[in-house]
Measured scan of single mutants.
Amino acid sequence: TRVETATETAWISLVTALHLVLGLSAVLGLLLLRKQFPAHYRRLRHALW
């Protein structure tokens, strides 16, 4: 049972790390898009919101 708990903890930390990386890359991508293609960014924002 101890090994299972350790594996679960590892999976949870892995998933958390993946979510963090995905969130950060999404934010960075949006910032880059905003900087380089303001028109595209505006259109995207209108489409999303």
Results as ranks from 00 to 15, higher is better:
Thr1Glu: 05
Thr1Ser: 04
Thr1Trp: 03
Thr1Cys: 04
Arg2Ile: 12
Arg2Gln: 10
Arg2Gly: 08
Arg2Thr: 14
Val3Ile: 09
Val3Arg: 01
Val3Trp: 00
Val3Pro: 00
Val3Asn: 03
Glu4Tyr: 06
Glu4Arg: 02
Glu4Cys: 02
Glu4Gln: 03
Glu4Phe: 03
Glu4Val: 11
Thr5Pro: 01
Thr5Asn: 02
Thr5His: 12
Ala6Thr: 13
Ala6Ile: 03
Ala6Glu: 07
Ala6Gln: 03
Ala6Lys: 13
Ala6Trp: 00
Thr7Met: 10
Thr7Phe: 10
Thr7Gly: 14
Thr7Ser: 11
Glu8Pro: 09
Glu8Trp: 09
Glu8Met: 00
Glu8Gln: 03
Glu8Phe: 06
Thr9Pro: 09
Thr9Glu: 02
Thr9Tyr: 04
Thr9Val: 10
Thr9Leu: 06
Thr9Met: 06
Ala10Thr: 08
Ala10Gly: 10
Trp11Phe: 12
Trp11Gly: 09
Trp11Arg: 11
Trp11Pro: 06
Ile12Asn: 04
Ile12Gln: 03
Ile12Ala: 06
Ile12Phe: 13
Ser13Asn: 05
Ser13Arg: 04
Ser13Glu: 03
Ser13Gln: 06
Ser13Pro: 05
Leu14Tyr: 02
Leu14Asp: 01
Leu14Ile: 03
Leu14His: 00
Leu14Val: 06
Leu14Thr: 04
Val15Ala: 05
Val15Glu: 09
Val15Gly: 06
Val15Arg: 07
Val15Ser: 06
Val15Met: 05
Val15Gln: 01
Val15Phe: 03
Thr16His: 11
Thr16Val: 14
Ala17Cys: 11
Ala17Tyr: 06
Leu18Ala: 11
Leu18Gly: 05
Leu18Asp: 01
Leu18Arg: 03
Leu18Ile: 12
His19Leu: 15
His19Glu: 02
Leu20Ala: 14
Leu20Gln: 02
Leu20His: 02
Leu20Ser: 03
Val21Lys: 01
Leu22Val: 09
Leu22Asp: 00
Leu22Arg: 01
Leu22Phe: 08
Leu22Gln: 00
Gly23Val: 13
Gly23Phe: 08
Gly23Ser: 05
Gly23Leu: 09
Gly23Cys: 10
Leu24Lys: 00
Leu24Pro: 02
Leu24Ala: 14
Leu24Arg: 00
Leu24Phe: 14
Leu24Gln: 00
Ser25His: 00
Ser25Thr: 11
Ser25Pro: 00
Ser25Ala: 06
Ser25Phe: 07
Ala26Pro: 07
Ala26Trp: 02
Ala26Met: 15
Ala26Thr: 03
Val27Cys: 09
Val27Arg: 00
Val27Phe: 12
Val27Asn: 03
Val27Ile: 12
Leu28Ala: 15
Leu28His: 01
Leu28Gly: 15
Leu28Met: 10
Leu28Arg: 02
Leu28Ser: 13
Leu28Gln: 01
Gly29Lys: 02
Gly29Phe: 11
Gly29Trp: 06
Leu30Val: 12
Leu30Thr: 04
Leu30Asn: 03
Leu30Gln: 04
Leu30Pro: 08
Leu30Lys: 02
Leu31Gln: 07
Leu31Pro: 01
Leu31Thr: 11
Leu31Glu: 00
Leu31Arg: 07
Leu32Asn: 02
Leu32His: 13
Leu32Ile: 13
Leu32Ser: 12
Leu32Val: 14
Leu32Ala: 14
Leu32Met: 14
Leu32Arg: 07
Leu32Pro: 02
Leu32Gln: 13
Leu33Pro: 01
Leu33Arg: 02
Leu33Ile: 09
Leu33Asp: 01
Leu33Asn: 01
Arg34Tyr: 11
Arg34Val: 13
Arg34Thr: 13
Arg34Phe: 15
Lys35Pro: 04
Lys35Asp: 08
Lys35Glu: 09
Lys35Val: 12
Gln36Phe: 15
Gln36Trp: 14
Gln36Glu: 12
Gln36Met: 12
Phe37Asn: 08
Phe37His: 04
Phe37Arg: 06
Phe37Trp: 13
Pro38Val: 15
Pro38Thr: 15
Pro38Lys: 13
Pro38Arg: 15
Pro38Glu: 14
Ala39Glu: 14
Ala39Pro: 12
Ala39Gly: 07
Ala39Leu: 08
Ala39Tyr: 10
Ala39His: 06
His40Cys: 15
His40Trp: 15
His40Glu: 04
His40Asp: 04
Tyr41Ser: 06
Tyr41Ile: 14
Tyr41Asn: 06
Tyr41Lys: 09
Arg42Ser: 10
Arg42Asp: 07
Arg42Ile: 11
Arg42Thr: 07
Arg42Trp: 08
Arg42Gly: 07
Arg42Glu: 11
Arg43Phe: 06
Arg43Val: 05
Arg43Glu: 04
Arg43His: 15
Arg43Thr: 03
Leu44Pro: 04
Leu44Cys: 05
Leu44Trp: 10
Leu44Asn: 07
Leu44Arg: 03
Leu44His: 01
Leu44Ile: 08
Leu44Glu: 02
Leu44Lys: 02
Arg45Met: 12
Arg45Ile: 12
Arg45Tyr: 06
Arg45Pro: 05
Arg45Asp: 03
His46Ser: 12
His46Met: 01
His46Ile: 09
His46Thr: 13
His46Ala: 12
Ala47Cys: 09
Ala47Val: 07
Leu48Phe: 08
Leu48Ile: 08
Leu48Pro: 04
Trp49Asn: 13
Trp49Gln: 15
Trp49Leu: 10
Trp49His: 13
Trp49Glu: 06
Trp49Val: 07
